[in-house]
Amino acid sequence: MSDRLARDVEAMEGALREHVLPKLDDTFARGQVYGVIYMLRHLLLHADSSLAPMARQVDRLRTLEQELAALGWRSGRPALPEVCANLATAPQAVAAHREALDAGLAWLEALVHRSFDAARLPGSQVPSAVSRAIRSCASDVNAIAAKLTPAPMFAQIATGQEPAEAGSRA
């Protein structure tokens, strides 16, 4: 994402908050302005920067593959999809990273189910360290994804007020 885009979005959000919102008395109109602010934040988060978080998520999946191998869990588990293993670290098209991430997330889900099912069997070959590694990876991947989601503004859109304003007018 370019610095200019970020500055432009911040300037538009600031202008909407400083110059437009104070002049609107209609709750619906204020809600629409908050909707535009939310959309601007969403666009800013997903502009050119979507490649970096996807690459971090794929890298985390690769790390999990190495951790599982180091822990000795080789038999009975699916392998990391080739599209993830072979994804170059150099910047590539977003579509290639999206494909790798989708395949990697499906792999992670399969690992979760496989480890859960295997852990319930007598004489389980899935040690608790493997389960912890899988849970940790899933948590890390979800945390990265959460950073791509702007804070919800449903209350502001519905009421046309900031949360502090909503509480002070009650």
Rank of each mutant, 00 (worst) to 15 (best):
V112H: 04
D102K: 06
A47T: 00
P22T: 11
S2D: 09
M39A: 15
H97T: 06
D140C: 04
A146N: 09
M153V: 05
V20G: 02
S131K: 09
R77D: 06
H19K: 15
G76V: 06
T159W: 02
L68H: 02
R41L: 08
L101I: 06
E162C: 02
N142V: 04
R60Y: 07
P81E: 08
T159G: 03
G14M: 10
L16F: 08
A145K: 04
A166T: 06
P81S: 09
V126L: 03
Y38P: 01
A103C: 10
L43E: 05
A47P: 00
P163V: 15
L87K: 01
A96R: 06
D140N: 07
A95Y: 10
D3N: 10
H42R: 15
I37Y: 01
R135Q: 15
M54W: 00
G31S: 14
R114L: 13
P127L: 05
T89P: 07
G167D: 11
D25Q: 08
S115F: 03
G31Q: 09
T89K: 14
S75G: 13
V83F: 02
T149C: 13
D25M: 05
A129W: 02
A55P: 00
E109A: 11
L111S: 00
D140S: 10
A158V: 04
H19C: 11
A103L: 06
L51Y: 03
R169G: 07
I37G: 00
A119V: 14
M54K: 01
S75I: 12
K23P: 03
N86K: 12
L43P: 00
L121F: 10
G104C: 04
A47L: 00
P163F: 12
L43K: 02
T159S: 11
A146Y: 05
R98K: 13
Q161W: 04
R17P: 03
G104L: 01
E18R: 09
A90Y: 13
C84W: 00
L24F: 05
L5P: 00
T27Q: 13
A166S: 11
L148T: 07
A119W: 08
G123S: 13
D3H: 06
P152N: 12
A79P: 06
S136Q: 14
D48A: 07
C137T: 12
V141Q: 01
T63Q: 12
V83I: 14
R114T: 15
E165N: 08
D3Q: 11
F116Q: 12
G123I: 08
E65H: 10
A85W: 05
A88Y: 09
P152I: 07
L21W: 06
I157V: 08
A103V: 06
R7K: 13
A15E: 15
V36Q: 06
S136A: 15
Q125E: 15
S168I: 03
V33C: 06
H113Y: 10
P152T: 12
E10I: 11
R135I: 13
G31W: 05
